[in-house]
Amino acid sequence: MNPAIQNLVISLGVMQVARKIPFEDPDILNYTRVGYIAVQVIVLGIYYYVSMKVKSKNDQTVLKYVDAANPMTSEPGQLVTTTVRDYDLSETSKLLRSVYMGILMMGFLHGYMKYTQPLFVQALMGLKGLYEAVPVKVHIFGHKAEGDLKRPWKAAGGMFGAAAGPQTDNAAITEAEKRVGGASKKDD
C-alpha cells in the first residue's frame, strides 16, 4: 500500500479511536500531553543516536547521483557528489526538521487552538514514522543498504503516485558531468 494512503487510513482510524476518549477529563488530557511529549523526546533521541552512529562509522565512500529534477522548472537534475556519511547525516537532519515542524504545528493546534485529538494521533504517527525512517532501518535495525534501502534513498511517493527519485545509473551521471563541464557539486 502507498505510504501516504496508509498514513491517511491510520490517521482516520486513530481519529475514530480518539473520539471515544474523554479529553474533557483533566487527568486524561494530561496523560495524553505527557504521552505526546514522551514520544517526541524518544523520536528526537533516536534520531540523535542515529546521527552519532553515522559519525562514529565515518563511512567516506563516495556517493554520486543525479538529484531529481524540479518538476516546476525545465532544468535537469543536478549532479551530487558526497560521502555516505554526509548523505546519511543530511537525511537524518531532514527527519529532525520534520519532527521540529510537527512539534511547532502541534504547539499551535493544541496551545493556541485548544485541539486535543491531534496530540493523540501525532503521538502514534510519530512512532510509525520512526519505524519507517530509512536511517533508523539501516543504522539501528541493522538492515543492509541494498534493494529499497540502497543509497540514495528514494523519497516517499505522494498520495497519487511515486515521487521521482534520484538517478544512479552511469548514463545519467555522465550526462550531468558533461553539463557542468566535469566539475561536480559538493553537497553539504
Rank of each mutant, 00 (worst) to 15 (best):
A4S: 10
Q6V: 15
N7I: 07
V9R: 10
I10H: 09
I10T: 13
L12N: 15
L12D: 11
L12H: 12
M15C: 14
V17E: 09
K20F: 14
I21P: 00
F23E: 13
F23M: 08
E24Q: 09
P26A: 09
P26Q: 12
L29T: 11
Y31W: 14
R33P: 00
G35S: 11
A38T: 11
V41F: 13
I42N: 08
L44S: 15
G45Q: 04
Y47V: 00
Y48G: 13
V50L: 00
V50E: 00
S56E: 08
D59Y: 01
T61R: 07
T61P: 07
V62M: 09
V62Y: 06
V66N: 02
A69Y: 09
A69N: 10
S74I: 11
E75D: 15
V80D: 04
V80P: 07
T82A: 02
T82D: 01
T83C: 02
D86T: 01
L96V: 14
V99N: 07
V99E: 09
Y100H: 04
I103D: 10
I103R: 00
L104K: 08
M105H: 04
L109W: 06
L109G: 12
Q117E: 13
Q117L: 05
P118V: 04
P118Q: 12
P118H: 04
F120W: 07
V121Y: 01
V121C: 04
V121N: 01
L124K: 11
M125H: 03
G126A: 07
K128T: 00
G129I: 01
G129Q: 00
V138C: 03
F141R: 13
H143S: 06
K144A: 15
K144S: 11
A145G: 05
E146L: 07
E146T: 01
L149N: 00
R151K: 06
P152R: 01
P152D: 01
A156W: 11
F160V: 06
G165V: 01
G165N: 01
Q167V: 03
N170Q: 15
N170I: 12
E177M: 13
V180C: 13
G181S: 04
D187T: 14
